[in-house]
Design a protein around this nucleic acid. Structure first.
Length: 450
RNA sequence: GGCGCGUUGGUCAAGGGGUUAAGACGCCUCCCUUUCACGGAGGAAUCACGGGUUCGAUUCCCGUACGCGCUACCA
């Protein structure tokens, strides 16, 4: 396994640097808070792009109109800004490959879907949701609890494979809703080289006929990701491991539409796990740690989910802890700045196994970064923390001295309130001033500190 | 159920045919310290199991178990 990875990774790096410009993308769907795993995916994309002098693109995957959440897109940009991972191209940053919002590219996808149908790689399907449900009921057994719309049942359904040409024509011109499904070939092996896992193969007979174009004319992720990666000239496509099972569909689509040789290099990142399986925002609530990068308020329910930022994490620490959750540089180094990560990052040192998130260690990283950062960097952040507690600090010089004095005992930025807030209370203020002016230096309440 | 991906201490992990199997978090003990924290010195704790291959497997191969993911006109 290891030897395969090493084997695969080397030629890819050569390719990455000499073949074409490195262009990677993060493609979130704006449906809610940006979670740990998403931010780490952004980070790895960003590090890879910057390492190879490439571009990092942010593409909004908003093809599901039923899941539109106001404010979610803006929120994603806010998170990236806070994290210091600014895209080179996006809805907000512009670029030559727009639009960067898939809903605005709607018309593009239809032609590709038509092309696939014309070439026999896809077909129209007229089955109603009720009929689909009926099919699932009919074929459901103990051995097969989740029947798929696949090569075994497609000929029993209402689609352009089973209906005669006239009927199909009639249905399509009578406002009958229809979708386009990929026709997965029988008994073929689709394989590709994953930069992290090496060769991964699938038997096409075991993969279902996924919907490519929905009844509302929007593409599904499957079609959109392939079309847009092609049109946006993406050289390396990275995403979470949960996408691995649908990778054969994407590989086939690349083969049919643009040629497999044009396909980006894939890498599927391991999942970040919570105390019980894939990390969810529920875990945060039940175990008492943040899951989202920044505070997120669900506009429908009004529920607030606290983020790392508001919890008192530094972006430096957040990036650092995320980076080493699944990656290391092979040395004993644990603390990395973003620049160091860019310098040292390599795809073949990413673990293939999922990693359980450990909040205790996350806090340790933040503590290390608070100790490491200069007072100048900390000042504004601490000011904000105090301000949120109703303490306005006017004297920056005093604040700086206080920060320097107490930062060793602050794990989270919010700890500055407990550790130093009292110093800025009205009564103490006068006294502190007095001491400063008399000695011309900070009085150290703790003699052990050198 | 099917398919896919995984499996080194409680957690993150290095390593990889012969090692006392790194390091970090957390935990414990001690030192420093009037307290706490910081810092320092130690300690407990790991290669899922079964078969191969081999002089020798934690490392390579095959199974099994377990975990996770996917199995939507969601991404």
């Amino acid at each position: 396994m290891v030897s395969i990875r090493a084997f695969v990774a080397i030629p890819m790096y050569i390719c990455a640097m000499s073949d074409k410009k490195v262009r990677v993308r993060f493609a979130p769907s704006p449906t809610g808070g940006l979670h740990l795993g998403g931010v780490r995916t952004v980070l790895y994309n960003y590090l890879f792009a910057k390492k190879h002098g490439g571009d990092f693109i942010l593409r909004i995957e908003d093809t599901d109109q039923t899941r539109f959440v106001p404010g979610a897109e803006e929120y994603i940009f806010d998170c990236l800004k806070w994290a210091g991972l600014e895209p080179d191209e996006s809805v907000q940053h512009g670029g030559d490959f727009g639009p960067y919002r898939q809903s605005e590219r709607k018309e593009l996808y239809k032609n590709y879907a038509e092309q696939l149908v014309a070439e026999g790689h896809a077909y129209y399907a007229f089955d109603t949701p009720g009929e689909l449900e009926q099919m699932r009921q009919q074929y459901r057994t103990d051995e097969n609890p989740a029947p798929q719309y696949d090569n075994k049942v497609r000929m029993q359904m209402r689609n352009s494979l089973t209906l005669d040409g006239d009927t199909v024509h009639e249905l399509m011109h009578s406002d009958t809703p229809y979708v386009v499904r990929i026709k997965m070939p029988d008994e073929e092996t689709v394989s590709f080289n994953d930069m992290i896992r090496g060769e991964v193969s699938f038997n096409t007979s075991l993969v279902d006929d996924k919907v490519l174009l929905k009844a509302d004319g929007m593409p599904t992720y499957h079609l959109a990701v392939v079309v847009d990666d092609h049109l946006m000239e993406i050289s390396h496509a990275f995403r979470g491991e949960e996408w691995l099972p649908s990778a054969p569909v994407h590989v086939l689509l690349w083969k049919y539409l643009f040629g497999e040789d044009k396909m980006p290099q894939w890498a599927h990142f391991p999942l970040i796990l919570g105390p019980s399986g894939k990390l969810s925002k529920r875990d945060g609530a039940t175990y008492g740690f943040p899951v989202f990068a920044m505070n997120w308020t669900d506009p429908k329910t009004g529920d607030l989910t606290e983020g790392f930022k508001e919890m008192g994490f530094l972006p430096e620490a957040f990036m650092n802890l995320l980076a080493v959750l699944g990656w290391n540089d092979g040395t004993e180094q644990e603390i990395f700045s973003l620049d160091e990560m860019i310098e040292k990052f390599s795809m073949d040192r990413i673990h293939s196994a999922g990693a359980k998130f450990d909040y205790e260690k996350a806090k340790w990283f933040n503590h290390e970064w608070i100790k490491k950062l200069t007072v100048d960097r900390l000042q504004l952040l601490v000011k904000e923390v105090l301000k949120s507690k109703g303490i306005e600090v006017a004297d920056d010089e005093l604040l700086n001295k206080v920060i320097d004095l107490v930062k060793d005992r602050c794990t989270l930025l919010t700890d500055f309130y407990e550790q130093a807030g009292y110093i800025f209370s009205k009564r103490l203020k006068a006294l502190i001033y007095l001491l400063f002016s008399r000695n011309g230096m900070m009085l150290k309440p703790c003699s052990s500190r050198s």
